[in-house]
Design a protein around this nucleic acid. Structure first.
Lengths: 299, 299
DNA sequence: TAAGGTTACGGCGATCGTAACGATC
DNA sequence: GATCGTTACGATCGCCGTAACCTTA
């Protein structure tokens, strides 16, 4: 048994048990991969994969059990490398952040700017994805840290930290009927609504509020992106429900913002990362930076 | 990085960072080991060991952190091998049991006999040790399962199962004054006592009982071994305090046994084994066998 | 016939062993 | 001088790549 065989199993898992593709990813020829797998299986004494003819179809019971340990080994191997690199120079490295558009545009700029000042040598890659993809990004090791609002509870092998609590706001053009008078759910329900796509940025809280009041929610447009929503609100397509912090007093002077904290339950934005996975010092500091910025928002 | 380097680090830990001894254990020459360590350190970019001249003295901060991951890898590697071997033939293998004399002689015979009938192909090695060594045996991987009474709480990375509860008994020769009348701690305290060595088989329960009653405990002889105690009791050296189950109605006809359940708090014998460590099926069944035998005792 | 996998064989490089040397107690 | 570690060098064995072959959609 050796580490490249362990690595091979990991890659095979990612390539649907395709030896040729695995070989390609590992930058060696296919025959080498084939042999390594044979040797490993014969060392263990039983096959790890079910075969149809020569083709690998799925994993055997042994294979799936072994794969659990393989994952542990690969994780530890990566950790060793990261720990050493960190020890060598904790101001050098790459930070992959997976998040949604709203966070990237309205929450992250400040903490990222501060972080960059402290760690100029660290490159930041921002991976934008939908909330349910964020977690996948972590598991696929394409992201180190995910910042997201929906769907991030109860995942084992994830560390989840509460970041900040926020609520929705209504935005309408100047002189829109909703720019004056008390706002109630009943009143809102009489207008076409523009808000986030299903699964995005607290959309579930909106749906929940209307459902609780037995009101029909007429969503005329939904987008992943606050700016898109604002654009169509400006065109008079309806009332926009967005994150309060996405309203910019300067840029959005042509829009009226109205608080909805009393109507729609607040949402929590969280920070998530993998358990058992070594985070470089700079990543740990980045998380601290996020929490500081979050405190400032809520204060 | 490769697995033999990982293995090397493990061995180095066990040999007080002695390269020569490590080489010996790994069945390769010392120069090879020296080189492997150099290569690994240069791959990581920083030394893992503090050196005094050329000699390895201790681990660096990096080294200790890396070693945590090394242990994880080694554990997972062993697990893979064990899982595969188990899959191949779960009736073949070695079961290392670490326990004390008392358990080995008075509790284990029945469950081991039954186990052997189901798994004739499994070899059983019994490692006798003092209670505080038992846990070490597990960590040193010289034992798979430990059965012990004292000192086995609160160890993280151990799985601990309650096995059975038992209490002490008094044994004295026929016609000894204590063979008649009510037994109290006060009465016991007026006789020289023979019992288990410190740290063994419920000795702490005895000490606790006397201390609670503010009585002096006059231990004239202590041994790790019930049979030794009985031998000296027969010689009239005093009153023996032993596990109730160590009294054999047939063999010990020349001794009088008297229950002490009302005087000395009961003790719990436990089964312990390492977390994150794959136990072959037969080991799992052995544990079941132990629990069954334990139930029969208490019933 | 293209795609996926196996087998045979030659060559190269990693790693081992031998051996000589350096340091430290 | 005994113990411990490093360095140099030749030998070997493992592993890769090339290439021919097999099997199935």
């Amino acid at each position: 048994m050796n580490l490249s065989q362990i690595e091979l199993l990991r890659v095979l898992q990612e390539t649907n048990f395709n030896l040729s593709k695995a070989a390609e990813r590992m930058h060696i020829v296919q025959s080498a991969v084939s042999r390594q797998l044979q040797m490993f299986e014969s060392e263990l004494g039983s096959p790890l994969f079910e075969r149809q003819g020569k083709k690998l179809i799925s994993m055997t019971a042994l294979g799936t059990r072994v794969m659990e340990e393989v994952d542990i080994i690969n994780r530890a191997k990566n950790n060793i490398q990261n720990i050493a690199a960190d020890f060598l120079d904790s101001n050098q490295g790459i930070l992959h952040i997976a998040t949604t558009h709203t966070q990237a545009k309205y929450f992250l700029p400040l903490p990222i700017q501060r972080f960059k000042e402290k760690y100029p040598g660290v490159k930041i890659y921002m991976v934008q994805a939908s909330p349910d993809q964020l977690i996948e990004q972590l598991h696929a090791r394409k992201a180190d840290i995910a910042i997201c609002t929906e769907r991030v509870d109860q995942e084992h092998d994830l560390v989840i930290k509460n970041c900040y609590e926020w609520h929705h706001a209504l935005v309408v053009p100047l002189y829109h009927p909703l720019s004056e008078g008390d706002i109630t759910l009943e009143r809102l329900a009489t207008y076409p609504i523009l808000t986030y796509s299903s699964g995005f940025t607290g959309r579930s809280a909106i749906e929940g509020a209307f459902k609780n009041a037995s009101l029909e929610l007429d969503i005329t447009l939904s987008a992943a992106d606050t700016d898109v929503i604002k654009t169509y609100v400006r065109l008079g397509m309806g009332a926009g429900l967005i994150t309060a912090m996405a309203y910019d007093a300067l840029i959005d002077q042509d829009l009226v913002v109205r608080d909805l904290a009393h109507l729609i339950p607040s949402s929590n934005t969280k920070i998530a990362y993998l358990k058992h996975n070594y985070l470089p010092l700079y990543s740990q500091h980045f998380i601290e930076e996020l929490l500081i910025a979050a405190d400032e928002i809520t204060a």
